[in-house]
Design a protein around this nucleic acid. Structure first.
Lengths: 225, 225
DNA sequence: TAATCTGTCCCACGCAGCGAAACTATCATC
DNA sequence: GATGATAGTTTCGCTGCGTGGGACAGATTA
């Protein structure tokens, strides 16, 4: 194990504050080593000590971080394009923000009858397959307060969890159907929803039958970045 | 120079994307070394390669960064308290957000006649010494569009720059006077404004005469974190 | 085909980093 | 104020990890 791996271990151990002793315990490094590395990181302001002398992640991390490209957005463009080409419908990526969902990326069908969701648009979390996905894996106590306003029920969400994707027909908007699947972070937490949407005339009353597999696959491709 | 210093050099060289050659040039490290370290950082997702194979800061940095405490806010509490005790007036810290200024920290005089600005309050950037400070060092072209709406002029701002602090009397609110000074980041850029505010009866028509030195010192203590 | 540019890999050498242990500081407890 | 316990800090000689020149391969240009 090299210095770098150790440094990362230190950083990890510090996320919620750590005394030297805790640092040692969590990282598994010898005291002297942990101490020396922490000091070295402190020089670069990757680590700081708070008023109680506990180690904390440093401000330098933020400087580097906001120069980092958004991996999810970067990865989304080709994946959404492929999904659109495969299904022939407009494809979108949604993030939850407060009590709505934000369309942060989209690949739109070029011509003919189609559903358009502009990037940046805020849609309700109360309706649509994307909304179902964003709520399905939330802790129940966080969902009950929203459910009364929703076009779907706890039962719907249980079903979404079971099969791993959601669909809706004329739920958010008349004439529109959609299929969505979760995008997860490395920890398995659902962080976004990918989906397609289009006219009921093409997608039918059970849009999942034809497109669920492709949508779920897109969800997988965007997961764990 | 240890591995860690080299790793930071690599990270620095990567902020706006870099091929291996650029990495070598900017960091001054031998090609083999730069390459090996970049790979090591990639394992930890502190570095990633974009579609063109160029190195970019990785998503792991963001994970660490949002666990980092806000150093400015942390440092502000004691500094504002000291400033309040020294001047006998309420002290505040403002950040600019869009076309307003946000009070992100405050230390209020406990009793008697005083001015209160609650933490979280959004104040106009068009009036008050804090507003003057936040605009004074902005590029001129970014300020001209705002000046027509402001209670102060380009001349005022030039004066603020010259002496290093701002004052206002009954500008933002009748009966209230204030003195503010800039807070700078390590690069010298003005990122916030510290100040005190109170009744004109106590602060007088030239509040800077008595309090500018203390306020400027508070600004220095919060700078370069 | 040669030349030149990339990125990647190898491996013998040497010094940077290692970590046990000693040391200091600070706090309770008797 | 002596004693013990718990914290952080520093030292120092040994060693194995990181080093970097250089070889290699693939792509692009002349």
């Amino acid at each position: 194990m090299g210095v770098l791996d150790k440094a990362v271990a230190i950083l990890e151990a510090t996320v919620e504050g750590a005394s030297l002793a805790e640092l040692v315990e969590r990282s598994g490094l010898p005291r002297a080593t942990a101490h020396r590395l922490a000091q070295a990181l402190e020089v670069h302001r990757l680590l700081i000590r708070d008023a109680q002398g506990r180690w904390r992640p440093g401000p330098r991390l933020a400087e580097f971080a906001n120069a980092a490209p958004d991996v999810l957005l970067t990865a989304a463009a080709p994946v959404l394009a492929a999904l659109r080409d495969q299904t022939g419908e407009s494809a979108q990526l949604y993030l939850r923000r407060a009590d709505e969902r934000l369309c942060v990326a989209a690949a739109e069908r070029a011509s003919g009858l189609r559903d358009t969701v502009p990037v940046g648009a805020a849609l309700p979390i109360s309706a649509g397959s994307g909304a179902q996905v964003l709520l399905a894996w939330e802790p129940p106590e966080a969902v009950v307060t929203l459910l009364p306003r929703c076009r779907f029920t706890a039962r719907t969400l249980a079903e979404v969890r079971r099969r791993g994707w959601a669909s809706s027909v004329a739920e958010r908007e008349p004439g529109v159907a959609s299929v969505s699947a979760p995008v997860r972070d490395r920890g398995g937490r659902v962080i976004a929803a990918v989906g397609i949407s289009g006219p009921i005339e093409r997608l039918g009353r059970r849009p999942g039958d034809r497109h669920a597999i492709a949508v779920v696959r897109a969800g997988h491709r965007l997961s764990g970045l």
